[in-house]
Computed example of a mutant assay.
Amino acid sequence: MSELRFTLADVAGVRLAVSPVNETVMSIWAMASPVHHPVHLPWIDRARVTLRRPEVAGRVRPLLELARPRSWLPDFLTPAARPNVEMAEQLEQIAATPPAVVVQDLLATTPRLPLSPFGLALLADPRGLLPQLVDAVRVWYDEAIAPDWPRMRALLDADVSYRAAQLAEGGAGRFFEQLHPSLRWLGDRVVSDDPFERDFDLRGRGLTLNPTLFTGHQVLWNLLEDSLPAGAYPVRAVGTLWEATAPPPGDSLARVVGPGRAALLHLLETATTTTDLARLTAMSAGGVSQHLAALHAAGLVSRSRQGRHVLYRNTDAARVLVRASRGGDSIG
């Protein structure tokens, strides 16, 4: 069990953000242990093919050795993410980690498993070998994550929007207790039912929370003294991630609203931006916008603003139509 102690400044400093590097690093767990991540089997099959390519396997090896199943990750490898951060910025942050912090974070992982050969080498020469690790993360993102990132990002952004609304409406106590079943709010602290046994004072530094696809069933914490406090929690609706992005042949919803608008409604079970919808459907951004305007006017799509983005999502009426269509019932 872990405890995170909050000041008023920490409560005010709770932030939600999507971390591309978290998904890249933690995806190794899913690929190495598919039995524990069955929802990701479509991605795992593709990722394993990618990893069999010699030019990928050799460069990714440092990451594979640090992100082993059942191992703890060094905090510097999953830094706290600010809102709208891009992968390149996070890679620069990892590359700039002071050697003393690399050593400290590596040693903090050893109670669970001893360091791998690359981990031991990095411990001995953090300045010389850290660039190899950064390159490994970059290559794995480019080869295995980037092709599916629009779909992943849409689901993660939708969760951030949902959780931000919870925080605004219910305050910190209710927010944390709804975030994950293992968390309890005790007035000035969060108690986490986990095996990590940390007692940590946030000391006014706030807490960044990242929804993630590959954590399994636990909330994971970055809680070393030289790390910005952060937590990674399982994203909602992960089971929808690899669903088909187009309506099936003969889809009754497509007969009613047209195939383009039907494709959007099948995707809008989670809140998504126009840009991501265009990437997922191969439509032009202008075409997506026209369809969304018509669906919004018909009361089938709602929209809300999250930072710089406008998110679209099905209304209750649209959800009824989509469920009927998937169940094979005629709706037209």
Score class of each variant (00 low, 15 high):
M1I: 00
L4S: 08
F6T: 07
V14M: 01
R15M: 02
V21C: 06
M26C: 15
I28Q: 14
A30R: 10
P42C: 07
A47R: 09
V49S: 11
T50Y: 07
V56F: 06
R59H: 10
R59I: 14
L64Y: 00
A67W: 05
S71C: 10
P74Y: 02
F76V: 04
P79E: 05
P79R: 03
A81I: 06
V85W: 06
L91S: 06
E92W: 09
I94L: 07
A95E: 13
A96Y: 08
P99M: 02
V101Y: 14
V102W: 10
L107T: 10
L120P: 02
A124M: 12
L130Y: 06
P131G: 09
V139W: 06
D142L: 12
D142F: 06
A144I: 01
P147Y: 10
A154D: 02
A154N: 03
D157P: 00
A158R: 03
D159P: 10
D159A: 05
A164V: 04
Q166K: 11
A168T: 04
G171V: 09
G171K: 03
R174M: 06
R174E: 12
E177A: 02
Q178N: 12
Q178H: 12
P181M: 05
S182P: 02
R184M: 09
L186Y: 12
L186D: 14
G187H: 08
R189W: 00
V190H: 01
V191P: 06
D194K: 03
F196K: 05
E197L: 14
D199F: 03
R203E: 12
L209V: 10
N210Q: 12
N210I: 13
H217Y: 13
L220I: 11
L228F: 14
P229W: 01
A232M: 15
A232G: 11
Y233R: 05
R236Q: 12
A237L: 14
P247D: 01
D251C: 14
A254C: 10
V256A: 15
G258V: 00
G258I: 03
P259V: 14
P259N: 11
P259I: 11
A262S: 13
L264R: 05
E269M: 15
A271G: 08
L277N: 08
L280M: 15
G287T: 11
V288T: 01
L292W: 02
L295E: 01
L300S: 04
S302H: 14
R305C: 00
R308Q: 13
H309F: 13
H309N: 14
V310G: 03
L311N: 09
Y312E: 05
S325H: 07
G328F: 04
S330A: 15
